[in-house]
Design a protein around this nucleic acid. Structure first.
Length: 129
DNA sequence: AACGTGACCCTAG
DNA sequence: ACTAGGGCCACGT
């Protein structure tokens, strides 16, 4: 007798998704005045090509932090794409909130792009080993 | 259960 | 040098 259908392991705890939690954690590790990229985080987490999901997680992170328990806000404004562009600025409360926050930390932004991006780049795989 | 979406990245012509 | 397309992962309905 074979099992008609048993691969239903809903052993998923009510806790948040590990992936999300991981992304939030790494993002929070980014020091002020520094920036990182989605791909770097994805790679650090082992996803490699899950850079997209990282962005997803960040968006949810903002909502989660505010809606769920807001334990600690996630500095999503420190995460940009590999080109240093503030691609996610449109998802912020205001289209300029991301840039304002970055500038508030000393990060210069010009044309929706981080100036000296390579210089301010913070790679978790290298900084955190 | 399947399809569609999304703050991306990489490779090819 | 630039443009175009596909792929991957996770979530929502």
């Amino acid at each position: 007798m074979k099992k008609p259908a048993a691969p239903a392991p809903p052993a998923a705890p009510p806790e948040e998704r590990n992936f999300f939690r991981d992304v939030h954690q790494v993002t929070r590790l980014v020091p002020p005045g520094r920036v990182t990229s989605y791909g770097a985080i994805a790679k650090y987490l082992g996803s490699g090509r899950g850079a997209r999901t990282v962005g997803y997680a960040l968006m949810a992170a903002n909502l989660d932090a505010i809606t769920l328990k807001n334990e600690e806000p996630v500095p999503a404004h420190r995460v940009v794409n590999r080109l240093g562009q503030l691609t996610g600025r449109h998802h912020f409360p205001t289209p300029t909130a991301m840039q304002e926050r970055l500038e508030a930390e000393g990060v210069r932004v010009a044309d929706d792009t981080v100036v000296d991006f390579e210089k301010l780049y913070w790679d978790p795989s290298k900084e955190l080993e």
